[in-house]
Every structure is written in C-alpha cells, then in structure tokens.
Write a protein that binds this DNA or RNA. Sequence first.
DNA 1: CTTATTGCAAACCGTTTGCACGTTC
DNA 2: GAACGTGCAAACGGTTTGCAATAAG
Lengths: 133, 133
Amino acid sequence: MIRQRLQAARLRPSRQRISLAGLLFVAGDRHVTAEQLHREAQALDMPLSLATVYNTLRQFVASGLIREVAVFGSTVWYDTNTGSHCHYFDEGRQRLEDIPSDLTRDLKIAAPPGYRIVGVDVIVRLRDDETLQ
Amino acid sequence: MIRQRLQAARLRPSRQRISLAGLLFVAGDRHVTAEQLHREAQALDMPLSLATVYNTLRQFVASGLIREVAVFGSTVWYDTNTGSHCHYFDEGRQRLEDIPSDLTRDLKIAAPPGYRIVGVDVIVRLRDDETLQ
DNA sequence: CTTATTGCAAACCGTTTGCACGTTC
DNA sequence: GAACGTGCAAACGGTTTGCAATAAG
C-alpha cells in the first residue's frame, strides 16, 4: 500500500522512504515537523538521518503526497491532508490541527488582474486558557 | 506626531526609533521585513544597525504599533495595519499586500473548548502570469 | 546618576547542500 | 553498471543575544 503510493509518485521505495511514508500515512491525518518525524523514527528504531527526513519531506511535497503549511517561525509544518482546509495552531503546545469545516469555501477571494492564486493558508492561532498568563 | 506615538507606547524616543517609526508610519500602510527596512534607513543616511532594526520591530509589535504576519519561509513580515485583514503574497516579487476587503468577517470561526483565539492569519499566495513557468 | 538603548560579533536554529558511499532498477 | 538515494558535516540565512559603550530621563 505504502509501496504503491510511492510508486504512483515515481519515487523509489527505499527503506527510508517506506519508513517515513508509513509514519505519515498509516494513522490518518497528521501534522508534523521534520524534527518530530525524525524523533519518531528514532524511537521506532528506523535508522535514518535528519537530512534524509528533510529531503524526503520536500520530495513528498513536490510529488503531491503531502503539503506544507505556513506557520509563524522558521519551522515548516507538513500536512498529510492535501485537500482545501484550514488550521488551528496551538501556540502553547506548538501543535497544528485541522479545522473540521473547510472555512475557505466561505472566502470570496479573487486574484488581482494578471495573477493566479496558487494557494490559500488560513491559520487560527490559539492559546489555551491556562497558558494564557 | 512620531514622538507622541512612541510616548504612548512607553518607548523612549531614541534617534533610531524615531527614524524607523518615521519610515513605517509616514506613508500609510506598509509591509516590510527587517532587512528591507534596514536598507531603506541606510539609503536615507539614517545610521542604525541591523540588530537594532530587529529589536525595534519586536518592541513595536509588543507595544501594538505594528503586527507580524506569518508567510512561508523564515522571514518575518511586519505590517503597520494592525486591524483585522488578510494578505496577498506575491511569490515572484516577494511582496506582501493587504487584501482590500476584510475576508475574515466571512469566516465563522469558533475556538475549540478551553481555547481562546489570539489571531487569524489568511494569506493568499499569488504568482503572476509571466512568472508562472 | 540611574535606567534604558544601541551596536557589534558571536551564537542560534531550522534548513539546505556538496560529495563520497550505498542502493535500486 | 547507470541512475538514483542516503548520510555526514559543513554552509546558509534570518534572527536573537551577551555585553561593553552610549544616550535619555
């Protein structure tokens, strides 16, 4: 199943890619950073380097298997749900989550003349009541 | 006017802060990065260091004079319009701009139980028709 | 004279890259 | 064996910080 997915994306099924695709796709929607995924792989004794995690995630994005999400800060988040949807970002726990209903459908966005819309990112930043000083 | 604005924010009107506040607030809404603002100041013979630009912009954010905008990549953008509104990001020219109508009013966002919404970022990524491969 | 601000250079941190080695087809 | 993938360590780029020098109240 994982192998088929990689094959469909024209990526050779190397041990590392199978491990990472397994972590990403076995458990439904996921939102992870490269470092998180690397730690997970380590914990499960899947030996691969951090550089490979970064490179692989970029390849997965290029192949449309996952997508990037823009959040504050320099960290790139990856989302296995490639459809149109929005995100909550819990600033206290630093966790990214889908917003159940696709709010983008409510948005009446037009591109300015001469431009094309290549993506819409909606992120709702949250603070939990305790963390909120 | 600039001095009053700084005073209201309880920031001492140092030469550097007056320069930067001038650049930011004299010409209506602006969207800049720290590097851009530093280059502008240099060009106008306002001597200040890049570190000061970074620090000052953070103070301005903390005082509510400007706000940060989350865009892809590690670069932080600063917006002199602190009200609720959304952004176009021109990926070719790397320019950030306001979307004239406040789309966030169309969004029916609720915070999950136990959470508070501290901000909503909507960024519409654009590519101009030429740049589009 | 006390407290805040600045500038430099070094640290930082997430990410990318060059290149020698290993793997897949 | 040709093309591709991996891992290391070093580079990168935007940002932050420690600290001595300087300026504001």
